[in-house]
Simulated scan of single mutants.
Amino acid sequence: MTEDLEAAAELFKALSSASRLRLLTMLTEAPATVGRLAEASSLSQPLVSQHLRTLRAAGLVSVQREGREARYEIADLHVAHIVADAVQHALESA
């Protein structure tokens, strides 16, 4: 049980950034490249790449290589539900 809680804590740590939540929300709509995410989020490409690295390490996003480009997408629908539920909860608590 302790290991399960540690894994859950790591998941929440990866979700603890508003920028990462924004990127996950964008990826819920459609897979995207780093450049597209940077443009849509107004974050720098290096910062988007860093956030995606964190999300990928947590198993929240996956990457598909298409030639020279890497297209990121949500790893599974549970991730989208976690983010949507957290946002809804925050709105209800405000």
Rank of each mutant, 00 (worst) to 15 (best):
residue 42 S to T: 11
residue 79 V to L: 00
residue 39 E to C: 03
residue 50 Q to V: 07
residue 65 R to K: 12
residue 24 L to D: 04
residue 2 T to C: 04
residue 29 E to R: 02
residue 15 L to W: 13
residue 85 D to F: 13
residue 64 Q to D: 08
residue 11 L to N: 05
residue 33 T to V: 05
residue 27 L to R: 01
residue 6 E to Q: 12
residue 84 A to C: 04
residue 22 R to V: 09
residue 69 E to D: 00
residue 72 Y to N: 00
residue 23 L to V: 08
residue 7 A to L: 09
residue 51 H to F: 05
residue 40 A to Y: 10
residue 72 Y to H: 02
residue 85 D to S: 08
residue 46 P to R: 05
residue 41 S to M: 02
residue 91 L to R: 10
residue 39 E to S: 04
residue 2 T to M: 14
residue 60 L to F: 08
residue 7 A to V: 08
residue 10 E to H: 05
residue 86 A to Q: 13
residue 59 G to W: 13
residue 34 V to R: 06
residue 65 R to G: 14
residue 67 G to S: 04
residue 84 A to H: 11
residue 87 V to K: 03
residue 36 R to G: 02
residue 7 A to C: 02
residue 48 V to C: 13
residue 79 V to D: 03
residue 75 A to P: 15
residue 20 R to H: 14
residue 85 D to P: 01
residue 54 T to E: 15
residue 11 L to C: 11
residue 25 T to Q: 07
residue 9 A to D: 10
residue 59 G to A: 02
residue 42 S to I: 08
residue 18 A to C: 05
residue 44 S to Q: 07
residue 37 L to H: 01
residue 79 V to E: 00
residue 60 L to T: 03
residue 72 Y to D: 00
residue 93 S to G: 02
residue 27 L to Y: 07
residue 1 M to S: 11
residue 76 D to G: 12
residue 16 S to G: 06
residue 38 A to P: 02
residue 10 E to L: 11
residue 34 V to L: 10
residue 69 E to H: 06
residue 40 A to R: 08
residue 73 E to S: 14
residue 47 L to R: 14
residue 82 I to P: 02
residue 51 H to V: 07
residue 45 Q to T: 14
residue 4 D to C: 15
residue 86 A to S: 11
residue 19 S to M: 14
residue 5 L to G: 09
residue 15 L to C: 09
residue 87 V to Y: 13
residue 15 L to D: 06
residue 23 L to Y: 05
residue 39 E to D: 06
residue 47 L to W: 08
residue 38 A to C: 06
residue 72 Y to V: 00
residue 42 S to L: 15
residue 69 E to K: 01
residue 23 L to Q: 01
residue 28 T to W: 14
residue 73 E to Y: 04
residue 44 S to W: 12
residue 74 I to A: 00
residue 66 E to I: 13
residue 62 S to K: 06
residue 69 E to S: 08
residue 2 T to A: 04
residue 76 D to L: 10
residue 73 E to H: 11
residue 92 E to I: 14
residue 69 E to R: 03
residue 11 L to A: 07
residue 33 T to L: 01
residue 54 T to N: 11
residue 50 Q to A: 05
residue 79 V to N: 04
residue 38 A to I: 00
residue 77 L to S: 04
residue 59 G to L: 01
residue 63 V to S: 05
residue 40 A to Q: 02
residue 26 M to C: 07
residue 55 L to E: 07
residue 91 L to V: 14
residue 90 A to D: 09
residue 5 L to F: 15
residue 6 E to S: 10
residue 94 A to C: 12
residue 52 L to T: 03
residue 15 L to A: 07
residue 78 H to L: 08
residue 8 A to L: 15
residue 40 A to I: 06
residue 71 R to A: 05
residue 12 F to Y: 14
